[in-house]
Design a protein around this nucleic acid. Structure first.
Lengths: 325, 325
DNA sequence: CTGAAAGCGCTAACAT
DNA sequence: ATGTTAGCGCTTTCAG
């Protein structure tokens, strides 16, 4: 790898001068610029970002911690985060926590040691205290932590209400909610709150089962859904906490010979792009994933640049009524 | 951020000594170690990896370039790459190329400038010459480039043969193959070759349509599949080049009132984990995604460590026969 | 307008 | 066993 010194020697100037044309600082004659750029090209020179970052105390790297990149929601989120980061000349260090507390902590250390400029936290197995010690620009996805850390989230409560009201309106008499993890203090939990508030007000029999206790294990959904219909064969409406789970419900209904939406009505959550193609018939509550990603990156970069940012960022959800309700 | 100097001052030793205990080199008294570690803890000290990397000329970062992290195949691939990298204490810089040539080139520059130790290339819009100038440990996914660059791939040819043979055996009289991009010189193209060799030998009428000309645009699949059945209503077997496309075929069959597998038999490709839950009935050719990822990371790290590696790494596929055939 | 020198945080000879 | 010094590649005062 050629260094700035090689370029300087080749042109016959000092490294300072080369650095100047590299950063376009001060007055440089056009001729000099041309010669330097030529030498750079010839030597196939690339400035060493490590050295630059060390000096500037700014790496232009953002850490992205999520539970599982292969989960369609996070895959889509990550894609948009990358897109926005790229536009702002930031790089993404990808951290898949698998909702493993040890790994999550370890990644935070690694990110700090790597001098990332900020972190987008989409995985939340940590306690509040562990967070506040991070001491780095931070944005959390779907989780409200301390007063100082901004968070971005869809309006899960509203989503829960919309989904439940739809099932009620469509005449369901016993409604099941398959929730995500309720213990992680995620804002996604308010889907559950929206469900409970609405269903209690309507006085309709209901049942709740919880998933994702140990990460996103698709094969666990299979068992959970099967158990649900075995224990409650009279359930005629299901509000699932993700489109992936909803797809699992549809599958089980097919297996049991229950007609959707005649015998059982099903609504999912997330509105992942992939779902539109794989289960296009599924009614769902759509999260504005791209907007969530955009907002997250913007809030982070604003913080990195020392700007004040808004703490609460709740983005609207949308009911997509299709054929399963 | 505390530096090594702060730790040294606090303990009352030189930075060298602190560096020594940090790296566990030479003889250090237990007492000294204890005192240094204590000071580190108190100061919340983290070694600056930028400085370390600069000195060592090794960043412990791997660049991962893929077309689209939100595509389930690449999401799953990335997840396993991350897992393997993490085990080996490497970090992942995520690059989503969107199959955009300019972005891909730009990312390669950024990765080199960032002093990554190697690159896993899963996106291939570049020419061979552009590659050979990269001059960094490299592993390509699904593409055979120069003699010196190792590649990892599933046995796509075999997959094409297996899928086609299955459709023939099940009595299909006119078979369509919906291929991926055939111009990018990917090994995935040999699915097409396997299809063609097999179908010609059997002398069965067939039709081929190509997708993914401009990246993975799910909504384009919709049109392509609709056109296929409109132009060739007598097609009774479809070999789709991915599970996502196959799901689209199933959807269109439902729309047209064609029964699967009675009227039309459908087989996909990839065998993504998500598919098992969202379209569990789909017959498919399963790629060993985790093994592909593992092999890719291993080959890359071996190269980084100066080992000789095997150039060709073709991993076996598996026919998963379900209900759509 | 250009260069010499110092320093970002860390490690490794080389001494002692 | 520990400290002094130089240097990784770069940028930026500060002189001239």
């Amino acid at each position: 790898m050629a260094t700035i010194k090689d370029v300087a020697e080749k042109v016959g100037v000092s490294v300072t001068t080369v650095s100047r044309v590299l950063n376009n600082r001060g007055y440089l004659s056009e001729d000099l610029k041309r010669r330097v750029h030529e030498a750079m090209k010839e030597l196939n020179y690339q400035p060493n970002e490590l050295a630059r970052s060390l000096f500037r105390k700014k790496s232009n790297i953002i850490g992205l911690i999520i539970p599982d990149i292969s989960h369609p929601f996070f895959g889509e989120f990550a894609k948009h985060v990358e897109e926005q980061a790229y536009k702002n000349r930031y790089k993404i260090l990808l951290c898949n926590s698998q909702l493993d507390n040890k790994k999550e902590l370890d990644y935070i250390s690694m990110l700090k040691a790597s001098q990332v400029d900020g972190i987008i936290m989409g995985s939340h197995t940590l306690d509040t205290e562990e967070f506040t010690s991070i001491n780095l620009p931070l944005v959390t996805l779907d989780r409200q932590l301390s007063d100082s850390i901004p968070y971005v989230s869809a309006d899960h409560y509203k989503g829960g209400v919309l989904a439940t009201k739809l099932l009620i309106r469509k005449g369901c008499r016993k409604i099941a909610h398959i929730s995500g993890n309720l213990k992680l203090h995620l804002l996604a939990k308010t889907r559950y709150d929206g469900f409970m508030d609405t269903i209690k007000k309507a006085g309709i029999p209901h049942v709740v089962v919880e998933t994702d206790l140990n990460g996103f294990k698709y094969h666990e959904y299979e068992q959970i859904v099967a158990d649900l219909f075995r224990d409650h064969p009279d359930v005629d409406g299901v509000f699932a906490s993700s489109d992936v789970i909803a797809a699992q419900v549809l599958k089980e209904c097919r297996r049991l010979g229950k007609k959707v939406p005649d015998d059982v009505k099903v609504i999912g959550f997330d509105g992942i792009k992939l779902g539109e193609f794989i289960t296009p018939e599924l009614s769902t509550i759509q999260q504005p994933i791209k907007e969530i990603a955009k907002t997250s990156v913007k809030l982070l970069i604003d913080q990195i640049n020392g700007k004040e940012v808004q703490r609460e960022n709740i983005l609207p959800v949308k009911l997509l009524e299709k054929e399963t309700t």
